[in-house]
Nucleic acid binder design. Structure first.
Length: 491
RNA sequence: GCCCCCAUCGUCUAGAGGCCCAGGACGGCACCCUUUCACGGUGUAGACAGGGGUUCGAAUCCCCUUGGGGGCACCA
């Protein structure tokens, strides 16, 4: 009786997906792929009031960007369509009716106000808050009276008053709860929509989900779900609850922690493969040393047995390091292609668009190993397009140098460069290094002055390569600009 | 308040009784490479929350304390 592995990602469109949600999606996806099973996306849009416009698209976009493809779900359909819960309401009503008919559920006429007061009262008396089962044993006459008052009831599960519910979580092991601590949860709301609990159980059953992989926040409602499976006569799936991802303040990661949404990481210049790799390591590990995994390796090695139970703090520094690793491993052409959108939007508008791709192909290899995120690229290469002469002219004067020696250095360099026939690295090397000796400067001093003159910065890619890409004319003109600035005493 | 759960360097983690005076990675620091920065290399500081057991032997098993997380909605 080896059922095919079927996992699902069941987001609710109440906001944009953040890395915590996506980590859950990733693990469910990896588990399905590892076992040759199916990955299903199901939209849990049962909270009409909280639904956010565009959230479904944002969720799907994030999944697509990361390459987490789904076998069934929105846009692709599938055998168990539809994959939006708002389109499956009959199913939930049917289930609720069946439960009522069997005496496993009942109508509750309590008003939200009464429930609220009740809860406040309970908290005040240091009692655990929970429904007091006021309507659990209403007679037909009482029900009829309430109906005629025009109250639309909700449906609640008749939770067993005693006994315990236990299950074996694939990650947490044996978990058990006293039924007496579980109150009668609402299954069907008065607006006709099901609660998460009902919809989730019905759909996971209907869609033949074999493994429910979800966040730890669901662990304590799992017994309720199990009770529901039981009452409905369904064979429950296996459960695996993933540890929480925390923000730097140790609270559950949320919007408050800055860039928590996947879209924002994308905008910040992180590569999907880096984010995926990083996320995979939040709660899972292969061994004591492997850190960088391709998607294939991840699929091949992933297992729930190696998922741990401790909540993890999202460590952006490490993500950035990892992103740098991935960036450096890109082919030069790939790096160009990935940088392009960031350059189009990040480079100053006065630079002609579309950007000269061949020029970029010369420039970008010079900064590839120096970037951690793609958003840094425009600033790193801006000077290749624009002469930035707003640097402090003192920065032309290196350590142990004077204004005069800097002028002399630039002047001599300019003279030598003018006559240089071949403008390549070897020529520059054999021209400028001896020049330093001649000027009684350390190579670093001469190169530093030239670097500022040519790039406008003290930190830049290697000087000779930069000069070659810029070309002789632009180098000479920038040196002249620098000389002019040095000669003007105002600085 | 009640229920459930967790606990190794600042952070992510390896460790399933002796291989551990605890290994790797990010970050920190130092040095090397070097025309700046970065990359790379080398080294270094840095943890088994505390207390009791069990055992010849405990980071690993049990109990308590402490700390932390999650849940307790007509939200998911």
């Amino acid at each position: 009786m080896t059922n095919p592995v079927r996992t699902r990602f069941a987001p609710s469109p109440t906001g944009y997906p953040h890395v915590g949600n996506i980590r859950t999606a990733l693990f469910a996806w990896l588990f399905a792929r590892h076992n040759g099973g199916s990955f299903i996306v199901r939209i849990e849009d049962t909270d009409v009031a909280r639904t956010v416009e565009g959230a479904v698209e944002a969720i799907l976009d994030s999944l697509r960007w990361l390459g987490l493809d789904w076998d069934e779900g929105p846009e692709v359909g599938g055998k168990y369509a539809p994959y939006f819960q708002s389109q499956r309401l009959e199913l939930y009503h049917e289930a609720a009716q069946r439960l009522i008919a069997h005496g496993d559920a009942y109508y509750c006429y309590c008003s939200p106000e009464r429930l609220k007061e009740m809860r406040e009262e309970q908290v005040k008396h240091k009692q655990p808050p929970g429904y007091d089962r006021c309507c659990r044993d209403l007679g037909e006459l009482e029900q009829a009276a309430k109906e005629s008052d025009g109250i639309t009831p909700v449906v609640r599960l008749k939770t067993p008053l005693e006994g315990q519910t236990r299950f074996n979580d694939l990650i947490w092991g044996d978990v058990k709860f006293e039924n007496s601590t579980i109150d009668d949860l609402v299954l069907l709301k008065s607006d006709g929509y099901p609660t998460y609990h009902l919809a989730n159980v019905v759909d996971d059953y209907e869609m033949k989900i074999s493994h429910v992989i979800r966040g730890e926040e669901w662990l304590s409602s799992t017994p309720r779900h199990l009770l529901l499976y039981q009452a409905l006569g369904y064979e429950p799936p296996q459960f695996a609850h993933l540890p929480t991802i925390l923000g730097p303040d140790r609270a559950k990661l949320s919007k408050r922690h800055g860039a928590a949404s996947v879209a924002e990481y994308r905008e910040q210049g992180y590569l999907p493969e880096a984010l995926l790799n990083f996320l995979a390591l939040l709660g899972w590990s292969l061994d004591d040393k492997t850190e960088i995994f391709s998607l294939e390796e991840l699929i091949k090695n992933f297992s729930l047995e190696r998922v741990n139970k401790t909540a993890a703090i999202f460590n952006q520094d490490k993500l950035s390091w990892m992103n740098g690793m991935y960036l450096r491993n890109l082919t030069p052409e790939d790096f160009v292609q990935r940088s392009l959108p960031f350059l189009e939007s990040g480079l100053p508008p006065q630079i002609k668009r579309p950007l000269d791709i061949n020029y970029l192909r010369q420039i970008l290899p010079l900064v590839q190993e120096r970037t951690k995120t793609l958003t840094e690229v425009p600033d790193l290469i801006k000077f290749f397009f624009i002469e930035e002469s707003d640097y402090p002219s003192d920065s032309l004067i290196g350590k142990g140098m004077t204004r005069e020696s800097a002028i002399k250095a630039l002047e001599s360099a300019r003279l030598k460069l003018v006559d240089l026939a071949v403008f390549d690295e070897a020529s520059l090397e054999s021209l400028l290094r001896p020049l330093a000796v001649e000027l009684e400067l350390k190579p670093g001093q001469l190169f530093g002055t030239l670097r500022v003159a040519i790039t406008g910065r003290t930190v830049a890619p290697p000087l000779f390569q930069t000069m070659i890409v810029l070309g002789k004319e632009r180098c000479l003109s920038r040196i002249e600009t620098a000389l002019a600035r040095l000669r003007k005493p105002s600085g």
